[in-house]
């Protein structure tokens, strides 16, 4: 399956196709996304994950066309 991913910061962006798509196996979950993006365990508390614009849990299953993004805290004002 192919899902759309938006993530800032120290994730492994090299696994993304066209900068924003992740190809995963059939039984993939949100945990798989964290893992594939290599988001370090110690930083995971600072990432808030959303699946199709709803808060997501690690065990949530994914399907083709899903959109996953991570809340990040950046500078601005």
């Amino acid at each position: 399956m192919r899902i759309k991913v938006s993530v800032a910061g120290i994730a492994d962006h090299s696994v993304l196709e066209d900068g924003e798509y992740l190809v995963l196996g059939e039984k993939a979950t949100i945990r798989t996304v964290y893992s594939r993006l290599k988001i370090p365990l110690y930083l995971r508390p600072f990432y808030r994950c959303y699946l199709n614009y709803k808060p997501a849990a690690m065990r949530d299953k994914l399907k083709d066309g899903d959109e996953v993004f991570f809340m990040t805290l950046a500078a601005g004002g």
Partner: peptide, 19 residues
């Protein structure tokens, strides 16, 4: 901490709704 940790050296498209 978060400002420092989160990818200060890289630019990436992000879903702005997260703000």
């Amino acid at each position: 901490l978060v400002g420092k940790a989160l990818g200060l050296n890289m630019r990436t498209p992000m879903n702005g709704i997260a703000m």
